[in-house]
């Protein structure tokens, strides 16, 4: 087990009028190489939860283990943990501060104690991995577009070579093209480098498409934890929590209600298409497209990466 939370609770401002229980007896085990989606409405405790995973917040109660070691144990080095568990905050471009892109990305590796040259190698690799164009390596990060800034900020965390990458709404405020590119890059990292990804998102479509495990956070607890299909089958309960299932799942349920005998569990458009074709008894299109994670999309990102 890579990361494990045992009975973790966190209370903001304990003993005061403003006391808020952000996490209540959370138990969670995350295995290496998983792609996890975390959903929950604003203020549900998601952000608090992910900040516990790299020791930015200390639980009021309970223990957290990374690779079997208690991260709040006496001799544990939290600084080293943070390079293992990389956390990309919401709007990470707000943390850029250096005069040029490459130096900013080198900040993390330099803090790890690497030499300038080593840090630069890491920085370049991270920038390539997020698909950041080489001609801007020496420009000021403040002159870049929103999407490019976001890439630089993600590269800043990636350059530390983390084993777990946590991203808090990495696509917030981006246009659809920028959003797809960032998400495809993240999937590429997951597949190529085998790192564990924890993606916090408000988009049910995104988590359905990319995650293989979905964790729902509500009022500091985890009511659902399973594959996206399992979780979205509880869509009525999700709605009560201010969440929902992907639009396409509703479409499938509507079809079923009108008497069309179709498998309603589809959570991506491609899968829905296949299910409908199956129900109609028509042949499926070419097998590569039948995959839940369509190859066509991945190709597009490959192009973006080289650009």
């Amino acid at each position: 087990m890579q990361l494990e939370l045992k009975d973790v609770s966190f209370i903001y401002n304990p003993g005061m009028v403003y006391e808020v229980k952000a996490l209540e007896h959370v138990n969670l085990a995350i295995e290496k190489g998983q792609f996890i989606g975390i959903i929950g409405h604003t203020g549900s405790g998601k952000s608090t939860l992910i900040q516990h995973l790299n020791a930015l917040m200390k639980p009021t109660e309970g223990q957290i283990f990374y690779e079997g070691e208690d991260i709040w144990g006496e001799k544990y080095d939290q600084k080293a943990l943070r390079t293992q568990v990389g956390l990309v905050f919401q709007y990470p471009e707000h943390q850029l501060f250096e005069t040029d892109v490459i130096t900013d990305v080198m900040f993390g590796p330099r803090n790890q104690g690497l030499s300038k040259d080593e840090a630069k190698v890491r920085a370049v690799r991270a920038l390539v991995q997020v698909g950041f164009p080489e001609q801007y390596y020496n420009s000021s990060p403040f002159e870049l577009s929103g999407g490019q800034k976001r890439r630089v900020a993600i590269a800043g965390v990636l350059a530390m070579d983390p084993q777990v990458l946590i991203l808090d709404e990495p696509t917030a405020g981006l246009d659809p093209a920028g959003r797809d590119e960032i998400l495809e890059q993240i999937r590429f990292l997951h597949e190529e480098r085998g790192i564990t990804i924890i993606l916090v998102s408000h988009s049910m479509e995104d988590v359905a498409r990319y995650a293989d495990r979905l964790i729902v956070v509500n009022d500091g607890k985890i009511p659902f934890d399973g594959t996206p299909k399992e979780v979205f089958s509880h869509y009525r309960e999700l709605e009560a929590m201010g969440l929902a299932a992907p639009q396409i799942t509703y479409c499938m349920h509507a079809l079923k209600e009108r008497g069309f005998d179709v498998d309603v569990t589809a959570d991506t458009v491609e899968e829905a298409r296949d299910n409908i074709l199956k129900a109609l008894g028509k042949p499926l299109p070419a097998p590569e497209n039948a995959d839940k994670k369509p190859a066509g999309k991945a190709k597009k990102s490959g192009r973006a990466g080289r650009r």
Binding site: Q51, K79, R82, L87, P92, H94, Q95, F107, G108
Partner: peptide, 26 residues
């Protein structure tokens, strides 16, 4: 921002006085 930089290995609490001032830049 502090947390984001700590997540990137920044250190705001230890080190000499001059170093701590330098560390405030990020």
């Amino acid at each position: 921002i502090m947390k984001a930089q700590i997540a990137r290995g920044a250190d705001f609490k230890t080190g000499s006085f001059i170093n701590r001032i330098k560390n405030m830049v990020p």
